[in-house]
Write a protein that binds this DNA or RNA. Structure first.
Length: 428
RNA sequence: GUGGUCGUAGCUCAGCUGGUAGAGCACUCGGUUGUGGUCCGAGAUGUCGCGGGUUCGAGCCCCGUCGAUCACCCCA
């Protein structure tokens, strides 16, 4: 350690600052809107939880829990962990506060930072952002499809095109167990290196995800989970497919899909974007029918997704998505005399309280510099105020787009904005 | 965690075989009295990621370290 090393952000965190923060804001807002738009209600949860929650919820055997968690002890000696994903925390809160005692399904959305101690890479950060939804307490295939549709609609609204959806069914616990045994038997016949064997030991499905050609071809002869599904699982999965088709949501069935968290059962899905490189998953999720009971709650099923906000931002950039340039400022005020500065601020505050968006020039700069700043701010109008204007209560309001100037009374400027100029209040 | 590539002004980058740093954009000021966007002129700005070494001399060479990036792995 030496103190001449310049201060910098911790390794692998994503940060958003102007101008790029606009894209982040936009993506996050659209994701949330899609969920709210479908009847999902906000749940805001702590960023750290009892370590035990993730051990039991996400699963001891997963990489996420076994080697990627930020775990620490607090001053009371409790073991806490920075949340690596959202579902476990939501279930904990639903159980703890009896949210499932009302009408079902319980539909919730969340948004915020998550943490995983992985080797960073573009699209993979140690602190990253997700928007997720959970629908708890319904076995309908319709709710599976609604959840997928919330994601798909959000992506489309954002303006993304170059992405695709893959779905599969992981079956119930029993079918999966029967299948896993067969798969282990098959894998034992393969001549694998030590590393792969160790991975297969933890979760044999993982080998389906291996990028190496020889493993891929070896695994092409492997038994497929789909062939071991129970009749009811198959029926459910087929219903999901026909509903998706009905809604016009394109998908492909990938019966080799692997999900990294232990709790998934039944329907599982993944959205990937094709402009992103190795970290191409922009969102994914599925059913987790045993999770709630596992965490000590009622035996209710659930389904949800997590969407990576960071990766969606990258996807927008890859596709050059144009963000609706809702020019935020209505007015930019340029005070050009000492006594006008306070008056300009007072005017700005008066208009701001009426929901007119106003900014103004600070510092003692020339009128030219002030107008340049007005121009750069993107404001629709500008207003120069000097001592003459203050005395006469009259100033020249300039339309920055057309250059047209009209004379207005400063004291009643808000009326002009409301009546003649017609300013649009911000969305919502 | 493993391997490869990279790290020079706010941004994008140039800098030949080592001789103490440059361009474009952005920024600031100005182009005669108080109105922006184009144009013209002038100007400010760098611990060359950080630490150490080799050398008379290092942005350029060597070692270490931090960070980014690509792939594996993993997944959002």
């Amino acid at each position: 350690m030496n103190n001449s090393q310049p201060l910098q952000a911790p390794k692998g965190v994503s940060e958003y600052y102007p101008d790029r923060s606009r894209i982040f804001e936009y993506v996050q807002r659209e994701l949330i809107n899609s969920a709210r738009n479908s009847g999902y209600l906000l749940i805001e949860l702590p960023i750290f939880e009892d370590t035990e929650l993730f051990r039991r919820g996400v699963g001891e055997s997963t990489d996420v829990v076994s080697k990627e968690m930020y775990t620490f002890e607090d001053r009371g000696g409790r073991s806490l962990t920075l949340r690596p994903e959202g579902t476990a925390g939501v279930m904990r809160s639903v159980i703890e506060h009896n949210l499932d005692r009302g009408s079902l399904p319980v539909k919730l959305w969340y948004s915020g930072p998550f943490f995983r101690a992985e080797r960073p890479q573009a699209g993979r950060y140690r602190q990253f952002y997700q928007v997720g939804i959970e629908a708890i307490g319904s076995d309908d295939p319709e709710i599976d499809v609604e959840v997928i549709a919330v994601a798909d609609r959000a992506f489309r609204k954002i303006g993304l095109k170059n992405y695709s959806l893959e779905i599969t069914s992981l079956g119930d616990k029993e079918s999966r167990q029967r299948y896993t045994e067969k798969l282990r038997v098959f894998i034992a016949t393969l001549d694998l290196d030590e590393e792969s064997l160790r991975r297969a030991e933890i979760n044999p499905l993982r080998l389906f995800d291996d990028k190496r050609g020889e493993i891929k071809s070896a695994m092409s002869a492997a038994p497929i989970l789909m062939d071991y599904l129970s009749p009811s699982s198959i029926e459910h999965f087929e219903r999901v497919q026909s509903l998706l088709t009905e809604l016009g949501i394109a998908f492909t069935v990938n019966n080799r899909m692997v999900r990294g968290l232990d709790y998934y059962t039944g329907t599982a899905f993944e959205f990937s974007h094709h402009g992103l490189g190795a970290q191409s998953g922009i969102g994914g999720g599925g059913r987790y029918d045993g999770l709630m009971a596992e965490l000590g709650g009622a035996s209710l099923s659930g389904i949800g997704f997590g969407i990576g906000v960071d990766r969606c931002v990258l996807a927008c950039e890859a596709e050059n998505v144009a963000i609706a340039e809702s020019s935020l400022l209505d007015l930019y005020i340029v005070p050009i005399a000492l006594e006008a500065k306070g008056a300009a601020l007072a005017l700005a505050e008066r208009l701001r309280s009426l929901e007119i968006n106003v900014d103004l020039a600070f510092g003692d700069r020339s009128i030219k510099a002030g107008m340049k700043a007005a121009n750069k701010s993107g404001a629709k109008f500008s207003l120069v105020i000097g001592s003459d204007e203050l005395l006469s209560d009259t100033a020249a309001l300039k339309n920055m787009e057309t250059g047209a100037i009209i004379s207005v009374k400063i004291s009643t400027l808000h009326v002009d904005f409301e009546n003649f100029i017609g300013h649009h209040k911000g969305e919502r």
